[in-house]
Amino acid sequence: MRVIISGGGTGGHIYPALSLVKEIKKTNEHADLLYIGTENGLESKIVPREGIPFKTITISGFRRKLSVENVKTIYRFLKGVRDAKKMIKDFRPDVVVGTGGYVCGPVVYAAAKLNIPTIIHEQNSVPGLTNKFLSRYVDKVAISFSESTRYFPQEKVVYTGNPRATEVIDTDGERGRASVGLADGKKTVLIVGGSRGARPINEAFLEVLPEAKIRDYQFLYVTGDVHYDSVMNEVKKQGNPENVLIRPFIHNMPEVLAGVDLVVARAGATSLAEITALGIPSILIPSPYVTNNHQEKNAQALRKEGAAYVRLEQEMNGEKLMKDIDEILTTNGKWEEMHQSSQSLGMPRAAQDLYGLMKELSN
């Protein structure tokens, strides 16, 4: 099988693509792969490091308001389509898969126009402009949240879940805990705001650090590189509580996730796929700064099923955060109830299901 994959801009588009690549390689070691991204996107650093053949095109996103910049974007799109067509003709793929981001636009559109079987994968409950546009041309639309069905042609939609979910299932939680210095036998709360951190989450936790210090459970607090120094200065003033471990970033997050009992985080699609695959209860503080407010809608999908508490950023404070943590971890039956609900939403076979859809189209 020969496969072109395209996805870029953020980890939320790239990591599901890489999870799919791992599944393809595991199932078909002779598969030929090509990843098409952009030179300036995060994918240009991450994908080559994984040993995947990588090529680039130049593209930018449309502004939602009328803008001269959109004229340039149209030009870049048309050039991107021409460049992508050349790469596709040279590579001769059996199927082309787009996992989101601007770069998918010209790549997947070019493949569809060349009558190559095409799939887009949507990670969020509310799709972006690129996937909405591509849904008119592709053969199948794979989704991660049932709520996103209404944005696409019904006959093309297949509910697969997020491939990233498959990757966390086989991780070793004990090894993950040991890698960051967490003690065995203690309930563990992971507090994380993404790779760059989230100031409101940081501030809320710092506010109640004296309370956290006297709890029976332990905390792993991932600040993000940007906020680490300022957070550490504040923590030192409060005596570096022994049950609070602080890290700027976690490189083996799937392993660490498998070893915790509760997660406090944003509501990015990839994070939620990992959390539900492992059946972890969560307290979600969606970022209000994302397109179409999709994180809040992602989070509400978990809240509706009883798998998460959702707290909007403007209403979050330390007192509420600690009250929520205590309630989930100490109320009789609450953690187990949320664990079961979270697990019921997990799609641990997501990568296999998406790969199956690829094989079906390419035959």
Rank of each mutant, 00 (worst) to 15 (best):
K79G: 09
K79A: 12
V81L: 07
V81F: 10
R82A: 14
A84R: 01
A84M: 04
K85T: 10
K86N: 13
K86S: 14
K86R: 15
D90A: 13
D90N: 14
D90R: 11
R92K: 15
P93V: 02
D94W: 00
D94L: 03
V96G: 04
V97I: 14
G98D: 07
T99R: 08
T99K: 07
G100K: 04
G101T: 05
Y102L: 05
Y102E: 02
V103I: 13
G105V: 00
P106N: 08
V107Y: 01
V107H: 00
V107T: 02
V108Q: 01
V108N: 02
Y109F: 15
Y109V: 08
A110D: 04
K113L: 14
N115K: 15
I116E: 02
P117F: 03
P117T: 08
P117H: 04
I119K: 02
I119W: 07
I119Y: 02
H121N: 06
H121W: 08
E122A: 05
Q123W: 01
N124P: 08
N124D: 12
N124L: 05
N124Y: 04
N124K: 07
S125E: 03
S125Y: 04
V126S: 06
V126C: 09
P127W: 01
P127E: 05
P127C: 06
G128I: 03
L129K: 12
L129C: 05
T130V: 12
T130I: 06
T130N: 08
N131I: 08
K132T: 11
L134Y: 11
S135P: 04
R136K: 15
Y137T: 06
V138Y: 04
V138M: 05
A142I: 11
S144K: 06
S144P: 09
E147I: 12
S148G: 09
S148I: 04
F152Y: 10
F152L: 10
F152D: 01
P153I: 08
P153F: 07
E155Y: 11
K156Q: 10
V158I: 15
Y159F: 15
Y159D: 12
Y159I: 14
T160Y: 01
G161W: 07
N162E: 10
